[in-house]
């Protein structure tokens, strides 16, 4: 009876993915020390930038006309949470473990798409690190008692959630594409380092993109990177009107479509170059 129930459960669409997710969740929870260190990394840069801006606002009259300190604080704190929840780091796993070390063979034999398997592997890391981010955010608010503005309108909250989910989709697909590039390269570190710098500059990790010189700001809005962290953060902050939020959703949908198409293309071309003993 129990076996039949389990068989039915397992055959339900999506249930098997949920079980894969749960298995990985156990593994990630067991490695929560590693998760915490990753979270600290996500926290460090925003904390440094915030400290920099606190001094800049204190010593330069007129700076507060851009954003107030509480706006800046909420931006960088939300940036920490968004980085922990939304910035996927699957590319190193794909490149080094799966492609270079030949573990991709295992995934090719699985009756699930590689794209979804890896997502279920990555999702628990995002959830646990995101929860660390939320904890740090609440702790900061309790200690500093700083007033931070958020969206409160239910419709805006729903749209902001959609923006965050689509951001995760862009982040994941983009990182999967980057990881798959290891099928063509012998040294992946070069790609990784260039990616890191581009993310840092065009993703709004240094400061809000509205502060950037005009040309750089426009280039940032054109690239998908700003739609991973920057737009979700300012949407939650309430810096966007509902119409602007809809526009962001449309652009994100386009990016998800384009990137997924690109992923499929790269996967089908790249897999022909793969050999079971690694690349």
């Amino acid at each position: 009876m129990l076996a039949t129930k389990r068989a039915v459960e397992f055959s339900l669409p999506g249930m098997r993915y949920f079980r894969i997710f749960l298995l990985h969740f156990q593994d990630v929870f067991q490695n929560r020390g590693r998760s915490f260190i990753y979270f600290l990394m996500a926290l460090l840069n925003p904390a440094l930038q915030l400290l920099f801006w606190s001094g800049a606002i204190a010593s330069n009259a007129g700076i507060e006309s851009y954003w107030s300190f509480s706006d800046m604080a909420s931006y960088y704190l939300l940036l920490t949470i968004a980085t922990s929840f939304l910035v996927v780091h699957i590319e190193q796993d794909v490149a080094f473990l799966d492609i270079k070390e030949g573990r991709l063979s295992k995934f090719l034999l699985h009756p699930f798409p590689y794209f979804i398997s890896k997502f279920m592997e990555e999702l628990p890391w995002r959830i646990i690190q995101g929860l660390f981010g939320l904890g740090a955010f609440m702790l900061f608010i309790i200690i500093t008692r700083i007033s931070i503005s958020f969206i409160s309108n239910p419709l805006q909250i729903i749209v902001a959630l959609v923006i965050c989910l689509l951001a995760l989709g862009i982040s994941y697909t983009l990182k999967m594409i980057l990881g798959l590039l290891a099928l063509w390269t012998t040294d992946f570190w070069g790609i990784l380092s260039i990616e890191e710098v581009i993310f840092l500059i065009f993703g709004g990790f240094v400061m809000p993109l509205t502060y950037y010189p005009e040309l750089l700001e426009k280039v940032s809005y054109f690239l998908p990177i700003a739609y991973i962290v920057y737009f979700p953060v300012i949407a939650v902050q309430g810096k966007l009107t509902i119409n602007e939020m809809y526009q962001v959703v449309i652009v994100q949908l386009i990016w998800v479509g384009v990137l997924y198409g690109l992923y499929r293309l790269i996967w089908h071309r790249g897999i022909r170059k793969y050999t079971g003993v690694g690349q």
Partner: peptide, 14 residues
């Protein structure tokens, strides 16, 4: 680049 961006709006810090 980061320093250039950060200091694009502020002449001095600390």
């Amino acid at each position: 680049i980061i320093v250039l961006l950060l200091t694009s709006k502020v002449p001095s810090v600390y």
